[in-house]
Computed example of a mutant assay.
Amino acid sequence: MAAAACNPVAPSGPVPFKDVDDGSVPEHTPKEEFGDLVAALPSRQQSILELRLYQGFWLPEHWVPGTIVFQRRFTPRPDDVILASYPKCGTTWLKALAFATAARTAYPPGGARHPLRRLNPHDCVPFIDEIFASGEEAKLEALPSPRLMNTHLPYALLPAPVTATATGCRVAYVCRDPKDMVVSLWHFLRRAKPDLLFADTFESVCDGTVVVGPVWDHVLSYWRASVAAPDRALFLRYEDMLRDPGGNVRRLAEFMGRPFSAAEEAAGDVAAVVELCSFDEMKGLEVNRPGSGTAGRYRPMPRDAFFRKGVAGDWANHMTPEMAARLDGIFREKLQGTGLIFS
């Protein structure tokens, strides 16, 4: 008994990233180490970002050195879960749902002191891309297992130890109708560049030169992984989550190795997770209201920018039928024969 008292059990994860990020890990950029490599890559300006073409995808220039370090040096734990998405496809919602589901024993979703009631979902689940870009990957080691992490990188750029079907970790991906994604991305970028034209964002998506694009290759990388190894890669659709949030929370819980028990079902825990993470609930919290601060490092964005409408079909208010037909046609052609269909 004395030995047990002297060796307390380590806290079980996931825990809010902001609660363990105490500032003790100094920032050091890996930019200098790979500066020549990055400088030699094709480049283009897209809205507020300088992009570089790295291994077939247009990444923000400041991500590239961190991505190289991530690919070469990251060691996943077997029970890690990486939440992935193309930007503006349900990232914030997936983070909230996954955190509330995986951490429900320590933090009951109906509790008044739940971390998601005081922290933005991006403060609960760390964004790998920015962490490695800032050289702060040691922060991830401070997180107790199981860890939840997030990335916007395509599956093809994830480290080999992550994607190894026998020894890697789990990856859950959410996709969205490309038309709604374009609209959401434009509104988000306009928070930093108010004069940005919708046509410019639309064209960059259509020609594949958008951030972390081409979008079709990004989506297909995770789709193919989910088909090849569904126990290691979960493919979720934003529209399906809107139609049946409870059913998709159950899918996510099962995938993460934390299925809801019969007792939890009877107690209404699934409904409690859905309610806690609902768009209206999250948007109404003080921490996510206008003027509540920012999230992100390189390009800090107002927290309320992550909660605009959260609906499907808003594209019809922003693009002409001809634009919609063009974008649908591009994706239909790019996805032909894969089994993946939009619209």
Rank of each mutant, 00 (worst) to 15 (best):
44 R>I: 06
233 A>H: 15
219 V>N: 07
138 A>Y: 09
136 E>A: 10
298 Y>H: 12
127 F>H: 06
129 D>W: 13
41 L>V: 11
18 K>I: 13
30 P>L: 04
42 P>D: 10
92 T>R: 01
337 G>N: 13
173 Y>L: 12
290 P>I: 06
272 A>R: 01
154 P>V: 14
262 A>G: 13
234 L>A: 11
217 D>S: 13
198 F>E: 12
33 E>L: 00
297 R>V: 05
299 R>D: 14
269 D>H: 12
133 A>K: 04
110 G>W: 03
104 R>H: 05
224 R>W: 01
68 I>F: 10
97 L>S: 03
246 G>H: 04
72 R>N: 15
39 A>K: 10
126 P>W: 05
150 N>S: 14
316 A>G: 10
132 F>T: 07
161 P>W: 06
264 E>K: 02
51 L>V: 03
50 E>C: 09
254 E>G: 09
131 I>G: 04
198 F>P: 04
172 A>I: 11
171 V>C: 06
280 D>Q: 11
108 P>A: 07
42 P>S: 07
163 T>Y: 08
313 G>D: 05
57 F>A: 08
194 P>L: 11
66 G>M: 05
92 T>F: 05
321 P>R: 06
263 A>S: 06
290 P>Y: 01
108 P>W: 02
275 E>N: 12
30 P>S: 00
239 E>T: 00
279 F>E: 02
258 R>C: 15
233 A>F: 15
248 N>L: 03
327 L>F: 03
269 D>T: 14
322 E>M: 08
265 E>R: 15
100 A>P: 03
183 V>M: 02
75 T>S: 13
328 D>Q: 09
124 C>W: 00
117 R>K: 14
339 G>F: 05
235 F>L: 01
1 M>T: 01
181 M>K: 02
215 V>F: 15
234 L>D: 02
114 H>M: 04
310 G>H: 14
282 M>P: 00
85 S>Q: 12
105 T>N: 02
308 R>C: 06
74 F>I: 01
60 P>D: 12
288 N>A: 11
58 W>T: 02
195 D>S: 15
282 M>T: 01
306 F>N: 04
57 F>W: 10
224 R>A: 06
264 E>Y: 08
194 P>T: 06
180 D>N: 08
212 V>Q: 05
257 G>R: 04
288 N>M: 11
202 F>W: 08
310 G>Q: 15
100 A>H: 07
4 A>G: 11
9 V>P: 07
334 K>L: 08
315 W>M: 11
247 G>M: 00
281 E>G: 00
185 L>T: 14
166 A>M: 11
131 I>L: 07
161 P>Y: 08
321 P>F: 13
120 N>Y: 10
233 A>D: 09
254 E>H: 15
126 P>I: 14
261 S>Q: 00
167 T>E: 13
124 C>P: 06
225 A>Y: 08
75 T>I: 09
276 L>V: 11
99 F>A: 00
